[in-house]
Simulated assay, not measured.
Amino acid sequence: MSKAKSIKGNVIYEDGFFMGEKDIKIYYKSFEVEDSEGVIVISHGFCESSEKYRELIKIFNKNDYSVYIIDHRGHGKSGRLGIDNSQVNVEDFNYYVKDFKTFLDSIVVPNLNDRKLYLFSHSMGGAIGALFLEKYNNYFEKAILNCPMMEIDTGKYPKIVSKI
């Protein structure tokens, strides 16, 4: 695990890497606010990265919440399969969930200091968040799954009939 720290105003900024599933380097950032109300973890969507959430992170920090965000494998500065740096791919979607748990256990939870933990997730990150919450329901106080990438189970009815 490698990391670097700096201070910007009242926010302690850290970024670094940890080893994810199948030895893929996963990038993360943290934005710690002194005496924060709680900690928000962001799980981004498909073809996104931590850079997209810069303004939202500022808003959360301004409202006294610390923020941790991961670049999921194949996205942003995290490792990926293949040689094309613009390619987004994953061998098994569950690797996202395993990476997310490693991120929480090794980076986020050790820095909680009795603060409450919240999840903000979008699209693919919402699917990752939902699968994570299904397996591990004792991490987050509350969760926002913004437009989660999910398919509705229509049961015995074909999807076309359900749409109508």
Rank of each mutant, 00 (worst) to 15 (best):
S2K: 08
K3N: 08
I7Q: 12
I7E: 14
K8S: 13
K8N: 13
N10V: 09
N10F: 06
V11F: 02
V11H: 01
Y13R: 14
F17W: 07
E21D: 07
E21W: 05
E21L: 12
K22E: 08
D23H: 15
Y27G: 04
Y27R: 08
Y28I: 05
E34L: 12
E37R: 09
G38K: 10
G38T: 11
V39W: 01
I40G: 01
S43K: 09
H44V: 08
G45S: 10
E48P: 03
E48C: 03
E48W: 00
S49W: 00
S50C: 11
K52G: 02
Y53L: 06
R54Y: 13
L56T: 12
K58Q: 15
I59M: 05
N61K: 01
N63H: 14
N63A: 05
D64N: 11
S66H: 03
S66M: 04
V67K: 00
V67D: 03
Y68L: 02
Y68F: 15
Y68M: 07
I69M: 01
I70G: 04
I70N: 10
I70C: 05
H72Q: 14
G74E: 05
G74F: 05
G76N: 02
G76K: 03
K77L: 13
S78K: 14
G79Q: 09
L81Y: 07
I83E: 15
I83W: 05
Q87E: 14
Q87K: 15
V88K: 10
N89H: 04
D92G: 05
F93E: 02
F93G: 06
F93H: 01
F93W: 07
Y95K: 12
Y95L: 14
V97R: 02
K98G: 06
F100K: 13
T102H: 10
T102S: 13
L104G: 13
L104T: 13
L104I: 15
S106P: 00
V108R: 04
V109T: 15
V109D: 04
V109N: 10
L112N: 08
K116N: 06
L117D: 07
L117Y: 07
L119Q: 10
F120P: 02
S123Q: 13
M124R: 05
M124P: 04
G125Q: 11
I128L: 07
L131K: 14
E134F: 08
K135A: 06
Y136C: 06
Y136N: 15
N137L: 11
N137G: 15
N138I: 04
I144G: 03
C147G: 14
M149W: 11
M149H: 09
E151L: 09
E151T: 14
I152R: 12
D153H: 00
T154S: 13
G155C: 02
Y157A: 07
Y157I: 14
P158E: 08
S162N: 08
S162H: 11
I164T: 07
